[in-house]
């Protein structure tokens, strides 16, 4: 079973909401750096990586973390690896 882009986007946004329950996700620009848009710090980001890894079963090496700094970039990265 391969994942669709929509499934991945939903997963990213939901896990983002879990990691940062106190952040305002409505109106988030998917191309904006999460660190600037939501004040996501390195612990939050690591928790997001952990959650996505667990939920989607996709390996995300630490050196690739910089490729998942916006919602769009994260979706693209995960989609490319979900095949």
């Amino acid at each position: 079973m391969s994942l669709t882009e929509q499934q991945i986007r939903t997963a990213v946004l939901e896990e983002l909401g879990n990691v940062a329950p106190d952040a305002e996700l409505d109106g988030l620009d998917p191309s904006e750096d999460l660190r600037d848009a939501l004040d996501i710090d390195s612990m939050d980001h690591l928790n997001l990586m952990i959650a996505l890894h667990k939920r989607l079963g996709i390996e995300i090496p630490e050196r690739d973390y910089p490729k998942l700094l916006t919602v769009d970039a994260a979706v693209a990265y995960l989609l490319a690896r979900a095949g």
């Binding site: 390195s42 612990m43 690591l46 990586m49 952990i50 890894h53 667990k54 995300i60 090496p61 630490e62 050196r63």
Partner: peptide, 17 residues
């Protein structure tokens, strides 16, 4: 840290802090 984290799943990785 990079070496250590490379061989671990995300939940076992460490932050430099």
């Amino acid at each position: 840290l990079a070496r250590r984290n490379a061989e671990r799943p995300p939940e076992a990785r460490l932050l430099i802090s």
